[in-house]
Simulated assay, not measured.
Amino acid sequence: MYCDEKFVIMYAQKGDNLNIMENKELALHAKNIRRNIVKEVYSAQSGHPGGSLGATDILTELYFEEMDINEENLNTLNRDRFVLSKGHASPALYAVLAEKGFLPEEELTTFRAINSRLQGHPNMNYVEGVDMSTGSLGQGISCAVGMALANKLDKNDHRIYTVLGDGECQEGQVWEATMSAAHYKLDNLCIIVDNNNLQIDGHVDEGMSVYPLDKKFEAFNCHVINIDGHDFDQLRAALKEARETKGMPTVIVAKTIKGKGVSFMEDQQGWHGVAPNEEQYHAAMKELEAE
């Protein structure tokens, strides 16, 4: 489903009612995106539903309210760019692109199929709107740093956004990239950590703990904001604060629930990379429709 952005603009002078209308519209987009995530993974009988569902609200806020990206500027340099550093959450990215109207919704059922453009990790060579090919954890944020630095050198005022997994922060490359971002004072870079405390082999804090994430990023000279990653008001406020922060990159540590929106998947390690069977698929879709 693609909803005309003019709908939101109509309410731009409604004062306190604006956030209420925006949040309802964003919630509708998020529901459609989650349904398509489940559809993608079920169609492929492969993929990563948990982290994709958990990151949905973050991507919804970015693509439908925060980022300067539309059909007119999609293939130009004059727009904001997004890097999904946790590339295994590609079902969320593809579903968002379809919701924006950049990708035919019917193509989502070809996810991970032979000869499909929609492979398990995003490939910028095949899909318009995918700004960087990702998959090897830690590398996406490095590319985002390079994009942000290039924009600074080119005097391009558009911003770069990237989403990391908390387990991904176990990669040393994440911290090298963050150190570089702070060194070059990349205040046009916003790093969002999808902090659900689960990875493929268990709880992050019980494996190789990355905590406290906020203090660590602060030690790397970043401006850090802690939020609930499912609260559109908090997401909106944090992204505004990031835009207004000068002289350093901003890191938003967004607390999320893996599998958000499907009760039997929520906060369950087992749904990191497992596709639902037919019964589970119908149960999930029914639950999301009633949400």
Rank of each mutant, 00 (worst) to 15 (best):
Y2K: 15
Y2V: 14
C3M: 13
D4Q: 10
E5D: 13
K6E: 15
V8Y: 08
V8I: 13
V8P: 02
M10A: 14
A12F: 14
A12D: 15
Q13V: 14
Q13S: 12
N17A: 11
L18C: 05
N19A: 15
N19V: 14
M21H: 15
H29C: 04
H29R: 07
N32F: 15
I37F: 01
V38T: 04
V41A: 03
S43H: 04
Q45T: 02
G47H: 00
G47P: 00
H48D: 01
S52N: 02
L53H: 01
L53M: 01
A55G: 00
I58S: 12
E61R: 12
Y63K: 10
N70H: 10
N70Q: 06
N70C: 09
E71Q: 13
N73L: 09
L74H: 07
L74D: 06
T76V: 06
L77F: 14
N78L: 14
V83F: 06
G87Q: 06
L93S: 04
V96Q: 07
V96C: 08
L97P: 14
L97R: 07
E99I: 06
K100N: 09
P104L: 00
L108D: 15
T110I: 04
T110G: 09
T110S: 15
A113L: 09
L118Q: 02
H121F: 08
N123E: 11
N125R: 10
V130R: 04
G135Q: 08
S136C: 09
L137S: 02
L137Y: 04
Q139H: 10
I141S: 03
I141D: 02
V145D: 00
G146N: 00
A148H: 04
L149A: 13
L149D: 13
N151W: 03
L153D: 02
D154W: 07
N156Y: 02
Y161M: 09
G165K: 06
D166Q: 10
E168C: 09
C169W: 04
Q170N: 09
E171G: 03
G172P: 10
Q173S: 14
V174T: 13
A177P: 03
T178W: 03
M179W: 12
M179F: 06
M179G: 07
A182Y: 05
N188L: 03
C190T: 13
C190P: 01
I191K: 01
I200M: 09
V204S: 11
D205P: 04
L213T: 00
D214T: 08
E218L: 11
N221F: 11
C222N: 11
H223E: 15
H223L: 10
D231V: 09
Q234H: 05
L235Y: 07
A237E: 15
L239K: 05
K240T: 11
E241S: 11
A242K: 06
E244K: 12
T250M: 03
T250A: 03
I252M: 05
T256P: 00
K260A: 05
E266A: 07
E266Y: 00
D267M: 07
D267I: 05
Q268K: 14
Q269H: 06
G270L: 11
W271G: 05
H272C: 03
H272T: 00
H272G: 02
G273F: 02
P276S: 13
H282Y: 13
M285D: 12
K286E: 13
